[in-house]
Structures are given as C-alpha cells and as structure tokens.
C-alpha cells in the first residue's frame, strides 16, 4: 500500500531573515503538528530548531503559526487543520525569532511584569487564612482567566501588538485582571495605573482575535474590558 505523506512547508531562518523549506513527512493517524515537526528534526533535518516541553497542553512552549494561524502544536491534530495534507509551520508572529520555529519570549514575559502581573500580598494578609468564597463575583472573574498557560498564541494573534510594540498584550492584561479580582492582593492602584493608557487596556480595539485563538478558550478581551472599566473609574477618582 502506498504511504500517504504530508506536504510540509517549514520556516527556516533566524532574526536576520529566512524562508520556507519543503519536506515530505509520513502521515499517521492521530498525528499532531508537534509530532510532525519532531519527525522532521529526527529523520530529515537535525538542525531544525523549535521549542516544546510537556507535549500535553500545559507548559505553553510549543506554540507556532500553523497554516497562518497561531496554535499550540502539541494539541493540534494535523487531520483537523490540514485535511488536504498540506501544512505550513512558522514561528509565532509579533515576537523576534531566535532560530527557525523558536521565538524569543523575553518581551512577552517582560510585559507581564510591566502589567504588575505578580501577586502582591496586602499588608497584614499573612496573619490568617484568607476566606475567598468561590461563588463570589470577583473570584469567578479571576477563575475565568486563571488557566492561562502563557503560550503567547493570543499575543501573536493580536493586531494591536503588531501596530503598537509597547502594547502589553492580551496575556499580560488577562493576568492583571485575575489579580485585580484577587481580594488578597494589595497593589491594585499601582496595577491599574500600569495597565491604563496607550500601552495598556485602553489601546485594545476588541477585535477578539485573542479569544478566537486562545487554546484554553479564555477570553482576554473580556478581561481587558473589565480593566478598562476599573482603570477609567480610578482615573475619574484621581486614584491613578
């Protein structure tokens, strides 16, 4: 029986530039895009660089541009995205390329820091256990965005990031929103000041590409809308 093959087009290059290179890879049932990239590296081209760790959709390291769309490759079945057995794989958009399919994530995580995306305990909060009712509105708002794995798919999908390199991006703002809704956190005014303005939530055009592409089905656009409301209220009160 003749073996079915995938027509792969993989971007090869570095920060200075590059181009797509074609490969033919055996098609297998249940094959993921990451499986295919790994097959190329192990059987055709050992020099192919890419990044992955867990292979089960938890670590957020394997995102790439697959047939023009940002996706987590470890959980993307070839049969789903390439029924015609033609597949292009490129590095994520909006991030500098290190080599081939591996991007430099530094700016992505720097923006989490700039958005005050770390928990800062309120003074005195360590004295006793905090009681956070799971059904409270704030906790539910935080829970809605808490499962972010930091894959940068939303960041690559965001038009505003491509237009405004300083824009914090959907993931950092979503992280800030989870903390804004954390009643134990004591740095809310500083966080709202950090996420307001041209580089922050107010720059979002609500295109919802982040929501469309998020592999965890999160809705950063809603988180950003929440930040817009709170930051604007804080501006009216003169708190930021």
């Amino acid at each position: 029986m003749k073996e079915t093959t995938l027509a792969m087009s993989v971007w090869r290059g570095d920060a200075a530039g590059g181009a797509f290179r074609d490969y033919r890879v055996p098609a297998r049932p249940g094959q993921t895009v990451l499986d295919v990239v790994t097959w190329i590296q192990r059987h055709i081209d050992p020099g192919l660089s890419y990044r992955y760790a867990c292979r089960v959709g938890m670590c957020g390291t394997c995102a790439m541009t697959v047939n023009g769309k940002p996706r987590w490759t470890c959980r993307t079945l070839v049969g789903t995205v390439a029924p015609d057995l033609r597949l292009s794989v490129a590095p994520l958009a909006n991030l500098p390329v290190v080599k081939d399919l591996a991007c430099d994530m530094t700016q992505f995580f720097d923006k989490w820091r700039r958005a005050e995306g770390r928990f800062q305990a309120a003074p005195g909060s360590a004295a006793d256990f905090a009681v956070v009712p799971p059904e409270s509105a704030a906790r539910q708002a935080a829970d809605a965005g808490i499962e972010c794995i930091g894959c940068a798919v939303c960041y690559a999908a965001c038009d505003v990031v491509s237009w405004n390199p300083a824009y914090l991006g959907p993931a950092a703002l979503n992280r800030a929103w989870t903390l804004v809704n954390d009643v134990r956190d004591g740095a809310q005014a500083a966080r709202l000041a950090a996420v307001a303005g041209d580089a922050g939530c107010h720059a979002c055009h609500s295109h919802q590409s982040c929501r469309e592409h998020c592999p965890k089905q999160l809705n950063p656009t809603a988180a950003i809308a929440g930040l817009k409301r709170l930051a604007t209220l804080a501006a009216l009160k003169g708190e930021i």
Partner: peptide
C-alpha cells in the same frame, strides 16, 4: 496628571 490617567480620560471622552 499622570499619563495613565490622561489616556484613560481621553478614552472615556
């Protein structure tokens, strides 16, 4: 006025 506040108020306007 802070830049963040100015941007937020422009957005509101």
């Amino acid at each position: 006025m802070s830049r963040a506040r100015a941007e937020a108020l422009l957005w509101l306007a």
